[in-house]
Each structure stands twice: as C-alpha cells, then as structure tokens.
Simulated assay, not measured.
Amino acid sequence: MSGVGVFAEEQIELRKTVAQLLAKRADAAALRKTLESGEAFDRGLWDVLCQQVGVAALAIPEEFGGFGATLVEQHLVLEELGAALTPSPMFGSAVLAAQAILATGNAEACERLLPGIAEGSSIAALCWVGPEGHWRSDDVACTAAGNDADGYTVSGTAHYVLDGAHADVLIVAASVEGTDGAIALFEVDPSADGVARRQLPTMDLTRPMSLVEFASAPAVRLTADDATAALEKVRTVAIVALSAEQVGAAERCLQMTVDYSKDRVQFGRAIGSFQALKHRMADLYFLVETARSASYAAVYSLSEGLPTAAADAAVAKAYCSEALLAVTGDSIQLHGGIAITWEHDAHLFFKRAHGSAQLLGQPEEFFKEMETLAGLPA
C-alpha cells in the first residue's frame, strides 16, 4: 500500500506484517478454497491473525483485554483485509459488535465480553436493522418487553447480521415497549430459547450475513439510557472502517488490471501501451488515491475526536463506495471476456464493491447527510 509516510514506524510494520501473512495464507487460491468449503471464514487464519498479530484487540482498551491502540491501527489492518477480500469476523465482531459493547458504557459487560472478542476466541454479532437495511440509529428491527426487576425479552427479526450464524454472543438493538420508543442494547445468548438463525445467500460470497429471529428470547439489558447516540457512534466508526476495506480492494483490483494490461497483447503490442487505456487507468488511479485520502482523513478525525468526524465519515463512505464501484466496473471491461468467467477474481471484487456500497447505507444517503451537516437546504 502507498501513502505510508503519514504513519508511525510501528503502524507501518503492523501493516507489513498483516500484508505478508495474508500473502502467505490468504491468496486467491486460499480464498476460493474457503468459499468452496462452506465455512464462513478460515478459522486457522483467524486464530493466527488474533493470536500472533492481535488484530481483533487493536481498538479495544487494555482494561478490557485489548491492546489499547487507536482506530488508525485497526484501519490499516482492515485495508489489507479488504485488499485480499479475506473473509473474517474482523468487521462484524471486532468492529461493529465490539464498538457497540464499548458504546454501552457498561463496564461489567465490557469486562465480561470484550476479552474473548479481543483474543478471537469469541465472535460477537450486532443485530440492528430490518429488511429495508437503513442502518439508522432511530430505526431498529426488534422490540423489547419487560423491566429491570423482572428481566427482559426481545422479539423481532434482524436482517443483514454480519457473522450472525456463527456468533457466540448477540448484541441486539431494540426499542423498549412503554418508553415512547426509547432504544436500548441487549445481550442475547444465541443458544437460548426463542432464537433462530439462518445464513442468507449473498451476492458477495466473502461477506457472510444472516437473518436472526427472536421470539420472546431472554435478554440482558446493557444500556440504562436511550442508546440512540451510542448506535450513531457505532455507525460512524463502522462506515470509516468499511472505507478502509474499500480502499484496499480498489487498489488491489487496479493493480491486478494494470498487470494484466502489461501482459495482454493485441495488434502486436501490450494493450497497456495504448494511450486510451493509459488515460483510463490514470483516472482510476486518481480515484483510488483520492478515496484513500478521504478514508484517512475520516479515521484521523475520529481518532482525534474532531468536530468534523461525522461529516468526514459520511464523505469517506460515499466517495469510497463510488470509487470502488468505478474501479471494479472498469476492471471488468479492461480485462475483456476473461473477467466475466467464474475462474477470474474480477467478479469477486465487483461483488464486494456492490455489497459494500449497500452496507451501512447507500452512497446517496450519505450525500444527503453531508448536505445536512453542511447546513445546505434539502
């Protein structure tokens, strides 16, 4: 990856370590083997990433079993995972669910749940959205009934749950009955009565999602106050993390295309020597680098707690989504007929681009958010 000059030496070494490990253990052949196995991810690789590198522990505070690093270190790891399209619980468990648990402010829950997530021995999943997939902090799929004295139950169906089918703990966002729509976060044991999980068929085979149904399932309330602000924080962190994956995938896909243009000969010369294709790939390079800048600006704003963090995150999600869509679409065209075959990797990047663009909200939703944050009329 380029652009390393803005990072500390330790951060650069972390990225190199992950990149080297993925090159050795998670190349295209290994990826296809995992996809064909029926498993959601390579558990052996995940154990190595967690035990030897500590990827899941990076953004978890030391008092809860993590390394206490910043979101920047996590960002660099996600960029490399995105470049390799590596299926792993990193985004669903170590980002979405872990950040939701941290956002509760519940020290007891953090001490009990986060160490396992940090070491990779436990996988958590955040159950949030309904079939529309809005990923809004004021719109959740489930409802909760009960009270602190007698306990709570959760009902409803959560869609698009990352790592939901194989999670060891479920964190559920639900509106609490009798509280004028107040939202709370709950912990639910996936093996409890009233919980049913089903793996969903997805266009992006590298990103497993599930549907999780709750029928008066026993739940432990984790937040005392309304959790709307907590969910908004989780969403902001998550869209910035997703932009890192998108940048990594875009750069790898572009490099794959450039390499092919040097090898593919037409009319007696490599197609990459034709001026029209040079211009086209130069435009794609510009998209990748500007997307990287947007992504890095967003994670810097978040890690520093800047007032522009929400706006920078919205820019990163919208721009990186559009950039990856453009790069993967042009990559297929520049590869020609070979790119539409199942055997070629171009379709995997193309599907990741479309899946990521929809995840956590479509690009146009974030364009509207940017207008709102900038004070522009709707």
Rank of each mutant, 00 (worst) to 15 (best):
M1E: 07
G5S: 12
G5E: 14
E9I: 04
V18R: 02
A19M: 07
Q20V: 06
A23E: 15
R32I: 05
E36K: 15
E36N: 14
S37Y: 07
D42E: 09
G44R: 02
W46I: 12
A57Y: 05
E63F: 06
G65V: 05
F67G: 12
T70F: 08
L71Y: 11
Q74F: 10
V77L: 01
G82W: 02
A83I: 04
A100T: 14
I101P: 08
T104H: 10
A107K: 15
R112L: 14
L114T: 11
P115K: 00
P115H: 05
G120F: 06
A125M: 03
C127N: 12
W128R: 03
S137D: 14
G146C: 01
A149T: 14
A149M: 03
V154K: 05
A158L: 03
H159S: 11
L162Y: 05
L162N: 12
D163P: 00
A167L: 02
V172Q: 09
A173I: 03
E177K: 11
E177T: 10
G178K: 03
T179G: 06
D180G: 02
D180V: 00
A182T: 10
D189N: 14
D189R: 01
P190L: 01
P190V: 01
V195C: 03
R197V: 10
R197Q: 08
Q199P: 06
T202D: 09
D204Y: 00
D204I: 02
L205M: 11
T206E: 09
P208F: 00
P208N: 02
S210N: 04
S216V: 00
A217R: 00
D226E: 12
A229L: 04
L231P: 10
E232G: 13
E232W: 02
E232F: 04
V237L: 10
A238L: 01
A244K: 03
L254S: 13
T257Q: 04
V258F: 02
V258L: 15
V258K: 13
D259T: 10
A270D: 12
F274E: 13
K278P: 04
M281S: 06
L287A: 14
L287H: 15
S293A: 15
S293G: 11
S295E: 09
S295M: 06
A297Q: 15
S301A: 15
P307Y: 03
T308C: 09
A310D: 13
A310E: 15
D312L: 01
S321D: 07
E322T: 09
L325T: 09
T328Q: 00
A339I: 01
A339L: 00
W342N: 13
L348N: 10
F350A: 11
F350G: 00
K351F: 13
H354T: 09
A357C: 07
Q358K: 12
Q362V: 14
P363S: 04
M370R: 09
M370W: 05
A374R: 05
